[in-house]
Amino acid sequence: MRYERPQTLEDAAALLAAADAPAFVLAGGTDLLVRMQNDNFEADLIVDIKSIAGMGDIVQSDAGFVIGAAVPCAALSEDAALVAAWPGVVEAANLIGSTQIQGRCTVAGNLCNASPAADSVPALVAADARVRIAGPNGTREAAVIDIPTGPGKTSLAKGEIIEAVLLPKRAAQAGDAYLRFIPRTEMDIAVVGVSVNLTLDAGGTVTSARVALGAVGPTVMLVDAAAEAIIGTSLDDAALDALAAACSAASTPIDDKRGTVAFRTKVAGVLARRAAQTAYTRAGGK
């Protein structure tokens, strides 16, 4: 197995494009290094992107935030402007694994690992985040929701690397929140994850919303019906009930070692209600 630490995205993309056996991108390595311990793991090439300029930076611009692909999740919580603008995204990223894991793991890696239970992905989807992708044929952009195509599978072509995660500029009176259910307090994987991102008008009425669910289907899903249930309301009980019902209805979970269909379906609604209330408060709603 070959380990490469290229200095440019072009070199990294070329290395991956030229590989004729399984090749992997290494950022934080918190998923990859664990997989490498498995008996059935095989790889010919590991491309470490941490030496590439800009990969470790968070940049704020008029358009929003650009988070380099190698920025550890812990660094997100140390960026005050990012925390103020996207508290739900930051809290989701900092629920992954444990304190030690968060010092290494990245949101881009969380996305590319393509687990339906990835904590940061529902928050990114609710935030309408995009990714910038470098590849053998240049750079392109895509919506976060279009990256995972199924458990462990992404829409990235051979040789393509996520270069950065892009979060839009924040409106006034907007807030987001992410909640997940795990049976323990940390070091666990979401049985259900829910993110709510909303914007209010001066009167406290929800003017726009995005609601995303994790771990209740093969990929993270954006639930339009859930958003519609709260748009135009001030998050009264009826709106919250409708939100919870929409999230439960949209859930298509399976019975597995992590939870049951009945449990996941119900808890998706419970967490949606709670996340919406937190997002609403963060947006300045009362």
């Binding site: 444990s98 323990r184 940390e186 994987i189």
Partner: peptide, 16 residues
């Protein structure tokens, strides 16, 4: 066996 690892065989962690 579906859960032969500490991720899905859930022993308590300290904070539990």
């Amino acid at each position: 066996l579906q859960n032969p690892g500490f991720l899905d065989y859930r022993i308590p962690v300290c904070s539990d």
